[in-house]
Design a protein around this nucleic acid. Structure first.
Lengths: 224, 224
DNA sequence: CGCCGAGTTGACCATGTTCAAGGTGGGTGG
DNA sequence: CCACCCACCTTGAACATGGTCAACTCGGCG
């Protein structure tokens, strides 16, 4: 059942949802309110009540935690078709923000315990998403465990290359600061390492946000 | 239904399983084969077929990945009552090994797709476990994202203190090398940082593996 | 044109790694 | 019972890597 109603962040008609979904991956939860966010805008904050399941329709969302000293650690980037906002407890323990202009659907049915499991088909999809999230988080932990900045960046770039449309071409939607906070590095180190990879002939920086992989083999070797 | 049969690693009668479980947390999957492992012994390897759900009965299990250069990254430590071995794909993408002498039950019913979801109660428990694992992995990623060795070790020690029996007392079952690989540090840095924490009066090293927290407040402050 | 945010680069410094040398304690065997 | 061994841990000194601070470039936009 579709919910359409007024909302603080530009709600849109349901037709738009279906339209945007066309040509994209399909999902079991094709209902919920469509909301759009501007770059940097907060979707929910750490500590708020959880229970809503979000699906990215357009753009990229990041989940992160702010530390006492002002530093920020980015947990994950979510792109079109991916879901986020699930929590094991009552509260969000991460903050979600829009990286660029983006649209997400919010399904509040997940406030009801076991709603997701009432139907076996829905349960299967639900579990698949949670397992995917667990795998992704473990992948990220493994990435952060790596020693060198070069290792980390190479792994990150390959990750982004996978998610992109054209093989060998990486269109970064996030800033250097975002990358730094995702890799546990500083913006300067990210920048330097990027330049170094270009000098070594592994990549070409068409622009800061557009990267061409010129030696996939060597890049993969760095990521092991 | 209980499965009891011969196995390479010391299978035991089912009575023993129930006996060991008494007084411990209860689980929806109280069936499966009990197997024991010696310190360092492999339970399953990265790349092997998945589908078995393991529950730790006694001892501690670590899941890790070995990198090309011989380095090892530890993903998690599992203690009595916790489950591991779930995968989103067909294969294990981590290796599981016994940290000390330990016993686990192996339930191969999870080879059948959607077995876990056939019953809603079982599905709920299953989802809870996967969500827990996701949360834990994200926690670990956040830990690894921290800059200082002191921050990391303080966080790790608090984590261990939580899991222990006596407040303020930490019994480490894992070696310094294990800790180093879990925190993305070297064994020397772990050792030095441990000593430094003792010099600063936050902890007392009764023995390398037995630690008394003498200033919980300051330790928490380090972990933020 | 001048501003501004994002990115790059350089010089110096702090932190953790590396390499190497001791300790320590629990086992085994003489 | 002691001597020895071995794995585990600690400590020290030199070194490498990434962080910090600061200057500079670049491109878009009022």
């Amino acid at each position: 059942m579709l919910m359409v109603q007024a909302n603080s962040a530009k709600p849109q008609a349901v037709g738009a949802i279906r339209a945007e979904w066309d040509g994209s991956r399909s999902f079991a939860w094709q209902h919920g309110l469509l909301r759009t966010f501007e770059p940097g805008q907060e979707i929910y904050a750490e500590g708020e009540a959880a229970g809503t399941l979000y699906t990215v329709v357009r753009g990229v969302v990041r989940t992160c935690r702010y530390l006492g000293d002002g530093r920020r650690l980015i947990n994950a980037f979510y792109t079109a078709g991916e879901v986020f906002g699930l929590e094991s407890g009552e509260l969000h323990h991460l903050t979600a923000e829009a990286v660029n202009d983006c649209a997400v659907t919010a399904d509040r049915n997940f406030l009801q315990p076991d709603y997701a499991l009432s139907d076996q088909r829905r349960a299967a999809t639900f579990v698949a998403h949670v397992l995917r999230r667990a795998g992704r988080a473990e992948q990220h932990a493994l990435l952060l465990g790596r020693r060198g900045a070069t290792d980390k960046l190479a792994t990150f770039l390959l990750e982004q290359e996978e998610g992109g449309d054209e093989p060998g071409v990486i269109e970064l939607v996030m800033s250097r600061q975002d990358i730094a906070d995702y890799l546990g590095l500083t913006i300067e180190t990210v920048s330097r390492t990027m330049t170094q990879l270009e000098r070594d002939g592994l990549i070409t920086l068409a622009s800061p946000r557009r990267i061409l992989v010129t030696s996939m083999k060597e890049l993969r070797a760095l990521a092991e």
